[in-house]
Design a protein around this nucleic acid. Structure first.
Lengths: 159, 159
DNA sequence: TATTGACCTCAACTAATATTGAGGTTTTAT
DNA sequence: ATAAAACCTCAATATTAGTTGAGGTCAATA
């Protein structure tokens, strides 16, 4: 019956069920709860009972983590979501948009690094001298000013 | 005089000098040494003295870290470099090539994630159902099978 | 109802990547 | 020669993201 199936579908989930369906360990769910990333209701016997929305929430956490965002930031982002009403398209869209920006920045940064690596494979020097990505102070600054190749007879540009 | 400048240039560096010129803390250099990422000679009084090659080595470590490679892996990669002779173009090129691969993989993975995020911003669902990136088990599997939008009246596809 | 599997809390532990501090020594500059 | 700055070792601490275990309780099934 629809009614039975419906109420079955709406049943709150135990921590084990959430763990299995979301692919994270029970201990991780405890941990996330302690960090304020998810919340639970409790059964009469003090066991956790999760509304199904927690599955999406955990999935979002995992996606955000893959973009390199630390849990504290994810927590902060999730904490602005309304607590009192079901979440809307706009709620999730705002979240994913803000992370999309950060993700793009990370990608751009890694691509710059890669391109630099590429352009320097030929000389093997990783361009420590003029590299904008990697030359914090004056590494190799005592070399001559022109570009130069290195071979087995020199190391760090010291003839 | 050239001879004096030369010997001055070739002087081994103290840990403080390396720290300043490479942009990492003295304690980090100690740490890298303990982890086998760099080595030092010692003065009569047991202080570290570094050949200038350490600057390149540290720079390479930092670049590799930015690509997301853990220190242990960097250590392993560096450990195959010859210890007995100055390093050549080929030595560094081999290193950077192997990391270039990994970097490309990371970039590709993040781009896939970003594109997925993008394609799902419209519906706000992050595509938890069919997402190849994020759907470890059967999250939301009790929903109907067709694509659907969510609005404020539903959460996790539960009407 | 009895038992077994799932759950509870709390504390301790892991691993990576360092930083900080205590207590003592070396080097450099005056 | 001496004082200051830099260095040494070793142990402890910090942070992030969890995992493991002890000791005890709850809930579903035979």
């Amino acid at each position: 019956m629809a009614i039975v199936r419906n109420s079955e579908m709406r049943r709150e989930l135990t921590v084990g069920e959430v763990a299995e369906r979301s692919g994270v360990a029970v201990s991780t769910l405890h941990f996330y709860e302690a960090k304020g990333l998810i919340r639970s209701n409790r059964s009469r016997g003090n066991q956790r009972r999760y509304p199904r929305g927690v599955l999406r929430r955990v999935a979002v956490i995992k996606v955000a983590q893959r973009t390199g965002i630390p849990l504290a930031e994810i927590q902060a982002a999730l904490s602005v979501l309304p607590d009192d009403r079901p979440l809307t398209v706009q709620d999730w869209a705002r979240l994913s948009e803000s992370w999309h920006e950060q993700l793009n920045e990370r990608i751009a940064s890694l691509m710059a690094l890669r391109d630099h690596l590429t352009s320097c494979i030929g000389c093997g020097c990783l361009s420590l001298r003029e590299c904008p990505l990697r030359n914090p102070h004056d590494v190799l600054s005592m070399e001559g000013t022109g570009p130069r190749l290195m071979d087995a007879t020199e190391e760090d540009g010291q003839p």
